[in-house]
Amino acid sequence: MAYTRARRVLPGFGLSLGFTLAYLSLIVLIPLSAVFIKAAGAGWERFVETVTSPRVIASFELSFGASLLAAAINVVFGLMLAWGLVRYTFPGKKLVDALIDLPFALPTAVAGISLTAIYAKNGWLGQPLSLFGIEVAFKPLGVLVALVFIGLPFIVRTVQPILEDLDAEFEEAAASLGASRLQTFRRVVFPAIVPALLTGFALAFARAVGEYGSVIFIAGNIPLVSEITPLMIITKLEQYDYEGATAVASVMLIVSFILLLIINGLQAWTARRSGRSA
């Protein structure tokens, strides 16, 4: 495909490539590079000192850990939701389908406040849970709950069209060849939806890492316990510590970028293995 000078059927390759690069630079690359330039302003030692301080390290652990875990939880349950929506018809299906998108549409602060109200010790769910000694609000668990909430639609909406496209004929074919339900799922259905699941995972993860509004209410923001990285950045900004804030942000950017790159790589690998882009 690459740079052959052969005549193309579709015109405007140069123009569209140029536009893509220029637009991406303007919207994404230039603002992001400003982060690194600003962070570099304070010098290497300040930088290292800032990003290795215990509070910042703890926030990295919480942010990335909870985001990965939340995305993983959403992969499992989002897949089940998508499956139910695609494979069965039931009264109110359209309504349920519309509800899935609600975490997209809801202002994140509203989500945060309502989650806090429900999971606080005197809340609808917090009260019964506290009887079992489980505390959600103002704990890392609360962060996880909020991230699961906002990440759900990403999985459902990426997997749903693929499942719809996956004809029941494939399952029938597997059954007629003697495969059990579990074998059919593991060998026929699952491999077909892995790329979509990975995409959904990447999107849910990326959203979770950057999430601020819904988390800060339920997290309680206790230093070393339930402070997320975006909050650390805001805190530093409020103290006019621009270098510190951009230093934390640049580490966050690099780690996110590497993780997303890995997920994309995985996706390309599964696609190659299944002959989709061979």
């Binding site: 004809d167 004929e169 494939f170 029938e172 074919a173 597997a174 059954a175 007629s176 060849l177 003697g178 495969a179 059990s180 060998r187 026929v188 491999p191 077909a192 293995r273 299944s274 002959g275 989709r276």
Partner: peptide, 29 residues
């Protein structure tokens, strides 16, 4: 169940497993 009937079924649109090679498709059963 269709699993237990020992019938071979060929679908109109083939229903070959897209993520498997020809060899693995035939070996599936």
């Amino acid at each position: 169940h269709v699993r237990e009937r020992h019938v071979g079924f060929v679908f109109q649109h083939y229903a070959l497993f897209r993520h498997m090679t020809v060899f693995e498709n035939v070996a599936f059963g």
